Computed example of a mutant assay.
Amino acid sequence: MARRKKVYEGQAKILYEGPEPGTLITYFKDDPASGGKDGATAAGTASGVGDGKGVLNNRLSEFFMSGLNGIGVPTHFIRRLNMREQLVRMAEIVPLEIVVRNFAAGDLSRRLGIPEGTPLPRPIVEYYYKDSRLGTPMVAEEHIVAFGWANQQDLDDIVALALRVNDFLSGVMLGVGIRLADFRIEAGRIWEGDFMRLIVADEISPDVCTLWDLRGLESPDREGLIREPGPLADPYTELARRLGVLPSNVTHTTKPTLIN
């Protein structure tokens, strides 16, 4: 499909005008995603990536977004176009990064002194204001409502949406031996006549998740100790392989390190 006018370019993706009104084409780059404020990126941004990362993120985001659509969680995803591009619905993005945490990791551990890997009593939803000039600061619901970024009904809907995404992702990851410590999503508004609803936008990939490998934990090491869960080695290739979505013609040999 011929590309149209460029709408936006970030570190990890480029948005182009779509073929029909109300659509966009997302092109996934190989560049690492922006880090922003530690914790605002779900403590899971990977670095050291190379050729093929964009291809894998395109396939992984397709897998997760299609799965969410299939269980009734609305997303902006329409269909994948090729190895690096997908067609999505245009949405008015709520200027927030929504972080859902299941285990203490990264910024949360440092802020509150909770040991890394501690299970949280329940999933915790945090909000970060999307402004890279300010370092994507953490904000409270009072800030969000007071400054008009979203109203209270929007926030209630966002929490419900985020928790449904968490249930889905946690189950899928656990099924392939991976612990989802935390992740980040974005929400967008779409209009259907006079009716507005919130949908999951942006992407779901290792760029926005903290993933820990659970496989082999039952086997003692040489000293007879059971090791703790650690970062998933090469999260892009390994996650795609375990989920069965690894393209046969992509070469990706780097070993990213998760930055918590």
Rank of each mutant, 00 (worst) to 15 (best):
R89E: 12
L96P: 08
V94A: 09
S109E: 12
R101V: 01
R101E: 00
R80I: 06
Y127D: 05
G70A: 15
R133T: 15
F77K: 06
G70V: 07
I114R: 04
P95C: 13
S109I: 07
V99A: 02
I93N: 05
I78E: 09
R101H: 01
D107P: 00
R101A: 03
L120T: 01
N82Q: 05
I93H: 00
I124D: 05
R79V: 07
F103M: 14
I98G: 05
S132L: 11
Q86G: 01
L120N: 03
R84H: 10
R133Q: 13
I98C: 08
I93S: 10
D131F: 08
R111P: 08
D131C: 07
H76W: 03
L108P: 00
G67M: 08
A91V: 15
E116W: 10
R133M: 14
V88G: 03
G72I: 06
Y128C: 02
R79L: 06
A105I: 14
G67T: 04
R79I: 06
L68A: 11
R122T: 10
M83T: 02
K130L: 15
R122V: 04
E97W: 13
N69I: 04
R111Q: 12
Y127N: 04
E126H: 08
R89N: 07
G117K: 07
P115N: 11
L81A: 08
Y129W: 14
G117R: 03
M90N: 10
V99N: 02
V99Y: 01
L108Q: 01
A104K: 05
R101L: 03
Y128G: 04
R79E: 15
P121R: 09
L96T: 13
V94D: 01
F103K: 10
I78F: 04
L87E: 08
E126W: 02
G72V: 06
I71W: 09
R101S: 01
L112M: 14
P74K: 07
P123N: 07
R89V: 12
D131S: 10
G106H: 11
L96N: 04
